[in-house]
Nucleic acid binder design. Structure first.
Lengths: 146, 146
DNA sequence: GACCTTATTGATAACTTTTTTCATTAAGCT
DNA sequence: AGCTTAATGAAAAAAGTTATCAATAAGGTC
């Protein structure tokens, strides 16, 4: 189901600002802050209020169409989320974020922690940090030059 | 090694504000924002500038003595961190955060994702959300009463 | 224990980010 | 094309964070 449909079927309109934000995030793999989104859209000839960026992000996040990605330094940004349960792996060099699916791998860990802590676990946040293939190559080339 | 020693051995002084912040976080299992820390300390007769709270947290985080915990809603706070690599499980009811160790459980997942994405994974962020034992009991009791 | 050096603090102000308000605009239905 | 109302934009308010700098106090020395 397209994000346009998700909006419509939940009783929301497919407005300009929502379209701009969604399209931008879909075309950019790196997480963006509200301000960055606002600036990028303004510069590309889509003048819209920054307030609309905040509101669009709030709604899109609620509908699961975008999601937050946390950087190791504590800063965070939004990326287009494919919907459904997934996680992100973030490049520490170029900050690109790629989604990866599946959490069956976590079930044994969750069971162990439930036993240890007596918590009932119902959700989780998982992100991986590393170096993406392109940056691996770029960094290797840079070393060679020295 | 105590946090006092960590400060000293890294050339930092064990000052009032740093002590207040550290002691407060050690006595409070729920993550606190800089403002909450400032208010709690002020009310308990430890008047200090909020600027010092920010600075203390920045330093303590850098030294690994405290760490950030993210709530599912995107808000975040600091908790005393036992040092070393660990993760937190957060109660969705009372927000208490408990640390749990170990990440060997993640190695197979990490290997799978490395193969799938060609990233080199070097770090990760993991948090679990659920209901703590106390809140499980409290919530069960509340249901019985109806 | 008093003294000295300098890291650290606190108050103010500057700045950035986020939220609120409300009249105006436009999305989507008829 | 017209109507209804959700959604926007601009401005202002509020909240959160960072910078500046004189005053203070932590920790070493005598």
């Amino acid at each position: 189901m397209s994000w346009q449909n998700v909006l419509s079927e939940n009783g929301y309109r497919v407005s300009g600002p929502r379209r701009y934000v969604m399209q931008l995030l879909e075309s950019n793999a790196q997480p963006m802050t509200p301000l960055e989104i606002y600036q990028a859209l303004s510069e590309s000839g889509r003048p819209l209020g920054i307030v609309s960026v905040y509101r669009a992000l709030e709604l899109l996040a609620e509908l699961g169409l975008v999601c937050m990605v946390y950087n190791p330094d504590g800063s965070a940004g939004y990326v287009a989320g494919a919907g459904g349960h997934h996680h992100h792996i973030v490049c520490q060099n170029c900050h690109r974020a790629i989604a990866f699916a599946g959490s069956e791998d976590l079930s044994s860990l969750i069971q162990r922690v439930e036993k240890e802590t007596k918590f009932h676990v119902s959700d989780h946040l998982l992100q991986l940090y590393g170096i993406c293939p392109d940056c691996q190559k770029a960094l290797a080339d840079a070393v060679e030059e020295n």
